[in-house]
């Protein structure tokens, strides 16, 4: 935590980026988490939207900066800038839309190119309330999670308020524990600052070597 914002009312600050195809409902998930509301017809997100919410984890105040990105192709380059400093990434697909699930591979690709290697990833299947229209099975989501070593897979419904808070809480909890553990790792790795304020050097070699890693 080397960011020193004026706001002293938190012990941890983590940046979380939501990505995924356009229309899977990223903004709805964020709205549900932030305001507890559901607006059926959200406008298309232009570039990046920013919200904050504090949670209490293990008795500490954890502030999440949530970056809700526009899923349109044209914003892909812009939103990449925000992966770099992200501590957590929420990859979203729509369980009623096969294409959104399949696109995740490309999104994951972007993440591995630009995000820090220790970034915590969560895969979320949205619109769980539309069970009758389900195309992507739960197993597909679980498989994806295992394949890419993601923290967890959760199906959510912003409309019915299922699992939204749980997803973010789980993420915040993991980030906090990882951060607490990371403090000691940091001293071991000679002078390399693996923290939210700067892009770890590891992030940039990945950019050049990603093809070799998978």
């Amino acid at each position: 935590m080397n960011r020193e914002d004026g706001d002293d009312s938190f012990d941890y600050l983590f940046k979380v980026v939501l990505i995924g195809d356009m229309g899977v409902g990223k903004t709805c998930v964020v709205q549900r988490f932030r305001n507890g509301t559901f607006v059926d017809r959200q406008g298309t997100t232009i570039g990046v939207d920013f919200t904050m919410k504090s949670l209490i984890v293990d008795g500490k105040r954890v502030k999440l900066q949530i970056w809700d990105t526009g899923g349109q192709e044209r914003f892909r380059t812009i939103t990449q800038s925000y992966y770099r400093s992200a501590n957590g990434i929420v990859l979203c697909y729509d369980i009623t839309c096969k294409q959104s699930y399949e696109s995740l591979e490309r999104w994951i690709d972007d993440v591995s190119k630009f995000a820090a290697p220790n970034v915590v990833k969560v895969v979320v299947g949205t619109k769980a309330d539309l069970e009758s229209e389900r195309i992507v099975q739960v197993e597909d989501g679980e498989q994806l999670q295992r394949r890419h070593g993601m923290l967890t897979f959760i199906e959510t419904s912003a409309k019915e308020n299922t699992n939204v808070d749980k997803t973010f809480y789980r993420l915040a909890e993991t980030l906090k524990r990882q951060h607490d553990a990371g403090m000691s790792i940091e001293s071991q790795i000679e002078g390399i600052r693996l923290n939210s304020g700067s892009t770890p050097v590891g992030g940039l070699w990945q950019k050049y070597e990603s093809c070799c890693r998978y």
Binding site: R3, K15, V48, F50, Q65, W67, Q80, S81, Y82, R84, S85, G197, S198, T199, G203, L204, K207
Partner: peptide, 12 residues
Amino acid sequence: ALMSGHEDTLIS
């Protein structure tokens, strides 16, 4: 926060 994201990109 927006600036820091872009600064990170440039640094990287």
